[in-house]
Amino acid sequence: MTKARKRKSGSLAEQILDPATLEKIAFWLEQAGVGSIEIEAGDGRLVRIVAGEDATSPDAGVGPAASVPTEPATVRPAKAPIAGHFLPMHPARNAAESTIGASVFPEQIVGFVRVGPLIMPICAEGAGTLDACIVESGDLVGYGDTVFLIEPAQ
């Protein structure tokens, strides 16, 4: 008969914040080629773990070194609210939510991201003209990735 493994005392968030655990997670991230992750604890605390040589920098993962595509200053991005597959239209509809060149208003749905049965809308942050879609239907997008470019209204 084997003994059941005893869980460490404290909440999961406290266990993750343990320096030894953080070091292991950072090592695993670096080995997997992942720059950083964010973990939200049940009490609302947010923990960001950054891997790699820049992990000791207070600005690690922020600024020009981060591999985030930049848009011209005159264009606003519409970003993916979750990681998943991009859909230009809802599966239950016959037409795309918006077309390139169409006017959009704040919070208008311009596309979707699908993760299994979950479908999340991609919304315009402000009024303007839908300038470009920089991904193809079915492409995998990450949380916060730019999907559409919107020319602000004048």
Rank of each mutant, 00 (worst) to 15 (best):
E136Y: 01
P88R: 13
V115P: 00
R114I: 01
A26I: 06
L17F: 06
A124W: 06
A96E: 11
E38K: 15
G138Y: 02
G84S: 08
A124R: 08
A65W: 11
A13S: 14
D145F: 08
S57G: 08
G144I: 02
G44M: 07
L22W: 04
S9M: 06
G128V: 02
P121H: 05
Q154I: 08
P121Y: 06
V113P: 03
L29H: 12
G52Q: 07
A51H: 08
P69C: 01
P19T: 06
P19V: 08
F148C: 00
V34W: 02
S57R: 14
R48C: 11
I119H: 04
F148V: 03
I39G: 09
T129G: 02
G52W: 05
E38D: 13
P72C: 06
A80I: 05
L87H: 06
G44T: 10
P106Y: 05
P19L: 06
D131E: 09
T129A: 04
L46K: 15
E97K: 02
G142L: 12
P152D: 06
G10N: 12
I150E: 05
E151S: 13
G63M: 04
G126Q: 11
V113T: 06
G111C: 02
I150T: 05
V47L: 15
V75G: 01
G144Y: 01
L22K: 12
E97Q: 07
E14I: 01
A4L: 15
F105I: 08
T146E: 07
P121G: 05
R114Q: 13
P69Q: 03
L22G: 07
L118K: 02
L46G: 10
Q154M: 07
V47C: 03
V110A: 04
E151A: 14
A95E: 15
A60T: 05
F27N: 09
A55L: 04
P117M: 00
T74F: 13
P88Q: 06
P72N: 10
Y143L: 12
A132Y: 03
V47Q: 12
P58S: 08
F27H: 13
G144C: 02
S57W: 10
R48L: 10
A20R: 12
P88V: 11
M89E: 07
G84P: 11
K8V: 00
A66I: 03
P121T: 04
A127C: 05
S103A: 15
R76W: 01
G52M: 05
F105C: 00
V47G: 00
A60C: 06
A83K: 09
S36V: 00
V113I: 15
Q31E: 15
L29W: 14
A83S: 15
G42T: 14
E23S: 14
D18G: 04
D139C: 01
P106L: 03
Y143I: 02
E71Q: 09
R7K: 14
K24R: 15
T21Y: 06
P72F: 04
V68C: 05
A4K: 10
G142K: 13
